[in-house]
Amino acid sequence: MTFLLQQTVIYTVPLILVALAGVFAERSGIINLALEGIMIIGAFVGAWFVRIMQEGGWNEDAAQGLLLLALVVTAAAGALFSLLLSFSAVKMKADQTIGGTALNLLAPAIVLFLVNIVFQQNTLNLRYDAPSWFMLFQTDFGFERKAKLGLVGDLLLNKTYLTTYIGLLIYVVLAVILYKTRFGLRLRACGEHPQAADSVGINVYRMRYLGTSISGALAGMGGFIYALTTSNGAANGDVAGFGFLALAVMIFGNWKPLNIAIVGFLFGLLKCISACSGTLDINGDGVYLLAQIGVSTYVYNMLPYVITLVVLAFTSKKSRAPKAEGIPYDKGQR
């Protein structure tokens, strides 16, 4: 059980972060289909940065500091890359779906081009094993190696990553900002009724640039966290549709942070089950329950999308999608 929950949390954190990234863009009025692409860029920049630092002789004792720095760098990279989207959507008033698709095509192409030419292989790996550098064990928190911490303690303090805490913290802070501050209200206004927002003196263009940049920063960070915690920090121009899964989480969560957290956990669980259904021993009694049921991993993989489709079918009338998303704001139009 502990292992299952630990793994689920590892999948959930990047998932809800990237879903929140989608929320910030869409609430400001820009459809961000490029989440997947931005994640790919974030994973790549993060891996490269960590590798350079490791090769430059960064001390393993200060590994957590390196992780923090890497998060900042990947957020910056994601925000920068997302500027391509906001420029096309805000300044050029171009179709946002096409812009997002272009970035989704561009990101893996650039990453694979550079990785192949610089490292002569298809995958950029960290210099050292990611878990051995970055994973936190209960001994790191001052507990004995054999001490029993119970389920919650194990979940919070053993075999975890700093990124989990930071990710959750950022999630809560940004969700509060979106709903409880003046800035959040203004941002949401731009996604609902930009003309009204403009009429009371809010700069819609600036808000949309900001919303998309926050979105990019979150997605870039999420991409790096995903790669670090689930695939040993390797960057190969691919996050296996995780960005689109986040999009599904956002839609199922009805663009609301609390719902998204719940849905994210559910989909994270499914993702985790699909990743290790063959070897998962839920109760620790030596019975591989899921393996015995014998449902293919691809079914678990498929389920989130099927569920989202079904939910869409039943709730389409109650959808809280931002009203003005996808429509370029034109000052002259009233």
């Binding site: 096309s88 050029m92 096409i98 698709t101 272009a102 095509l105 561009l106 192409a109 650039i110 694979l112």
Partner: peptide, 20 residues
Amino acid sequence: AYNEYIANIIIAVIVYLSAF
């Protein structure tokens, strides 16, 4: 020494620009 992904980059840039 270059690789085939340059073609994908060019295609992606063209898609990006074709939105304009």
